[in-house]
Amino acid sequence: MSCDDKKPLVHALADGELDVVHAREIEAHIASCTDCAGSFARIMTLKQKLSAPGLRLRAPTGLAERIMAGLPAPVADEMGFEAPRKARLGSWGRSANAWRLRAQGAFAGGLGAFALAACLAFFVMRADTGNEIARSLVDGHLRSLAGEHLFDVQSTDRHTVKPWFAGKLDITPPVPDLALKGFTLVGGRIDYVDGRAAAVVVYGRRTHVINLFVWPGTDPAPPTMELSGYLLRHWTKDGLTFWAVTDLASSELDEFEAAYQAAT
């Protein structure tokens, strides 16, 4: 039996490019096909080898300085991270569309190549929706770091932060005390993500900030995204959507999610 039609999906599985349904399907096939199981194992071995240190390279010293020398001087007050949005909306919107059109074109062209690409289509479109939210979440995170709007209520006491949300939104997010797990509650605020109001619970670890966005609903989204160097982690519980955004390492974000989930 030839599995040529399965080969691209075996790679896609190894690369984490399949949605859950198709991942299960191909996993089931691998479990019963020694040929594809062998391919999958070889791909994973190779990926392992390529994750060795010394393969991702460091830019030569001095290069960053030379590039920075060509940049406009930093803003003196370190406030206002982003230029006013209206001023830029024209070119912003236009090129976003051009970019999206190109992506769609690239994808449409691929349909002929693999009949099974349909399952990727599903994944790709979902990833697109996720990107808009991710962009909006990271923007909110960056605005908060730029000092524009980190808290509406600043307190390390959960009995102050939690009631503050009541009456301002339809939902009240859980605000567990995670100090023993190494995450300090620093406050809360209301922010807007992709046009909707969200409760934001703010935790800190060392000098890093975790903005936890919470809103009602349980729309599907990828569990983990990375955008512009920031990590986003998504989960749902009790009819609420949670998005944690931070510049902490992924292992520490895991820790945070586990601690928060265990406490709620």
Binding site: P8, A12, R102, A108, A127
Partner: peptide, 21 residues
Amino acid sequence: SYRQIAEVTGVPIGTVMSRLA
């Protein structure tokens, strides 16, 4: 991601996948 590689290299996702394989 495959989609991003397709954007960068200007080829369809299917081509990205076969090149990667």
